[in-house]
């Protein structure tokens, strides 16, 4: 069994904090540049330019891309043949705490959701998964709350039509409107249970944004992603909600088997500053 000291995890998380908050993901940058190229609305183009300039300036100056450095969400894929010496969860939170301090990010976490009180840098949210092998994969998603507040969950009937599901997803984007920093990336989770669909929707944001090429068959996940993206970009919400083609950069769907009696669908919207970073140890 391979051994790994918990301190290595802490160091890795500190590095992820920096990468995720200062450097926009390559696929997101690419999608933004593409949206800028395609946009015909003059104002939308100006705003997309500012978004691209902001990403470049943040990287150059070591500044957070957005002041909302999020609720840090850490996805852990722990190989079952790896032995961590030390406390894994404490190591992750310690990396978050010291990384956020070191890089002057924002202390946005209220220790008590009802009493609120003085905010701090941690704890983060940890989603743990056991996988085969002797490695550990750590993924940090600092999730801003302007867009997290627009999350939705609906328990559909197993007999509900695809059209009903599509309307629900499109309505979620409409209700986010101008508020959650469009152009969005729309994470959708379909199947599982109420909690699992929500997790899938969030995980969908980690999926690399792919250029849509050619035709995807109707009824398949890529086909549905494509149809939804097209319809969402017809809403004319656009950057800052001031109109334009670029309402969403991508729709990413994750599915999982579900129960005969149900069809959970969750939507987790990301702002244009979709940030995440990953490391394998």
């Amino acid at each position: 069994m391979r051994k790994l000291k918990a301190v290595k995890i802490t160091q890795a998380i500190v590095e992820l904090v920096k990468r995720a908050n200062f450097s926009l993901r390559k696929d997101v940058l690419f999608a933004l540049r593409k949206a800028y190229g395609f946009e015909k609305n003059r104002r939308a183009k100006t705003i997309l330019k500012a978004i691209l300039d902001n990403a470049a300036y943040a990287q150059k100056e070591n500044l957070a891309i957005c002041q909302d450095t999020g609720m840090p969400v850490v996805f852990v894929q722990l190989g079952q043949d790896l032995k961590i010496s030390g406390n894994l969860k404490a190591a992750i939170n310690s990396g978050i705490e010291s990384g956020y301090k070191k890089y002057s990010l924002r202390n946005s976490i209220c220790k008590d959701p009802l009493l609120r009180g003085k905010s701090g840098f941690s704890p983060c949210i940890i989603h743990m998964d056991i996988v085969s092998g002797n490695k550990i994969t750590l993924t940090l998603l600092p999730k801003g709350f302007g867009c997290e507040n627009k999350s939705q969950l609906k328990m559909f009937k197993p007999t509900s039509s695809l059209e009903e599901i599509k309307s629900f997803i499109i309505d979620a984007v409409k209700s986010a409107g101008a508020d959650a920093c469009p152009p969005y990336v729309i994470g959708v989770g379909i199947g599982g249970s109420a909690d699992y669909a929500s997790l899938l929707a969030k995980k969908a944001l980690l999926k690399k944004i792919k250029l849509q090429r050619g035709l995807s068959p109707k009824g398949t996940v890529p086909g549905l992603e494509r149809e939804l993206l097209f319809e969402i970009n017809n809403l004319n919400i656009g950057p800052l909600g001031l109109g334009g083609r670029a309402t969403a950069l991508a729709v990413n769907i994750q599915t999982y088997p579900t129960h005969i009696a149900g069809l959970p669908v969750a939507v987790n919207i990301s702002c244009h500053a979709l940030r995440s970073a990953e490391i394998v140890l």
């Binding site: 957070a64 891309i65 002041q67 507040n149």
Partner: peptide, 20 residues
């Protein structure tokens, strides 16, 4: 607006608007 902490050598950190 609720900015980030101020990095050393800067006037202010990242300081964009929040949802009105």
């Amino acid at each position: 607006c609720g900015p980030t902490q101020t990095p050393q050598g800067k006037v202010i950190g990242s300081c964009g608007p929040t949802t009105s």
